[in-house]
Design a protein around this nucleic acid. Structure first.
Length: 315
RNA sequence: GGCCAGGUAGCUCAGUCGGUAGAGCGUUCGCCUGAAAAGUGAAAGGUCACCAGUUCGAUCCUGGUCCUGGCCA
């Protein structure tokens, strides 16, 4: 029996670029050619149960019968992390492949995609150490902690700006746990075999208009009510979930810090900024093949994937 | 036609008791290893509507011109 290659297909693109629809269309197009495919979510916010409207989580209808992995796997009080997600996603990918199913990694969070596909090794964490350092950060401030980092590990401190409390805390934590901390990201080298990455291209004007319309629709669809319900489930205690775009602004509205119009506007501008940031990150990855977003892109992706599978079979 | 308000960064505006200007948004470019829809740094960009006067010096004061909005005819 010839060796069969089941590629990992990563679908990247900024928020509101239509990844969800393209992923499902791609799965259907592959299915029509006898190749099964399932979606593996790589979006940090889709993992939370109950966060539906504000995350534009695909509904069962939108999923079109294609199995989706890693959606609705946590409560809002939990905190997803890159390291956990890397393990979960790699397991889901491996599971698909052993069943002969092509995993479609739907990438919303660039760091997550990067960590799943590339050679990221995460040093451990210790809640007690972390909590202590965060307490100190709140007490003495980032510049002071940065000075301490510089005295312990000058080279690491050089790569981290004195105002960036988050990175300083993590660096100190890892140094305490392991003795050293590397402060630069690894390069673009796949840790998995047979990876194909696509990117969905959308013009700025179209993307901005879509974001604005989408935020408007989220509010009309009851985002405020969704947030109120989630507050009852502990959303405010959720360190990650409470900071999601849209959710953070509605919380501010409920606290009287913003008017409704301001909260909406802040969500739009925040989402726009986020999309630029994501785009920047994806653009830096030279291995991504860019295609204009739309129904045709799913077709050309399908034929590329079919080529890989067929080539391996020697057809 | 008269009165009032205003013309300052791509947009919305602040400001300078006269010493050539700022904020937010936008744009551009970075950093990122257990919160990443997060965190964090920097840059570009203005003949301060136009002309003249006063002044050592005007975006700011004075006069005029043009334009915009509102009110009154």
């Amino acid at each position: 029996m010839p060796h069969v290659i089941i590629p990992v297909v990563a679908l990247n693109g900024p928020t509101a670029s239509g990844k969800t629809a393209v992923a499902v269309a791609l799965a259907h197009a592959l299915g029509a050619g006898g190749i099964e495919a399932e979606v593996v979510n790589a979006d940090s916010m889709l993992v939370y149960r109950g966060m539906d409207i504000g995350t534009a989580k695909p509904t069962p209808a939108e999923r079109g019968g294609v199995p989706h992995h890693l959606i609705d796997i946590m409560d809002v009080t939990q905190s997803a992390s890159v390291a956990d997600f890397q393990a979960l996603a790699r397991a889901a990918i491996a599971d698909c492949r052993t069943r002969g199913v092509v995993p479609l990694l739907a990438g919303g969070s660039a760091l997550y995609v990067h960590a799943i596909l590339d050679d990221f090794v995460f040093p451990g964490t210790d809640p007690a150490v972390r909590a202590r350092l965060e307490g100190e950060l709140a007490e003495v401030g980032a510049p002071e902690l940065h000075r301490r980092l510089a005295s312990v590990a000058p080279e690491t401190a050089e790569g981290i700006l004195p105002g960036n409390g988050r990175r300083i805390v993590r660096a100190l934590e890892v140094i305490e746990l392991t003795g050293s901390f590397r402060s630069t990201l690894p390069g673009w080298e796949y840790a998995l075999d047979d990876v194909v990455q696509f990117g969905l291209e959308v013009s700025r004007e179209v993307l901005d208009a879509r974001i604005e319309a989408r935020v408007e629709r989220m509010w009309a669809d009851g985002l405020v009510a969704e947030v109120e319900r989630l507050v009852g489930q502990g959303l405010r205690e959720g360190r990650t979930a409470s900071r999601a775009l849209g959710y953070r602004q509605v919380l501010a509205l409920m606290d009287g810090e913003l008017t409704e119009a301001e909260a909406k506007q802040a969500t739009v501008t925040g989402t726009r900024k986020f999309s630029r940031k994501q785009l920047g990150w994806f653009r830096r990855d030279p291995r991504i093949t860019w295609l204009p977003a739309g129904p045709e892109s799913a077709a050309s992706m399908a034929s590329a994937v079919r080529g890989i599978v067929a080539g391996a079979r020697g057809e």
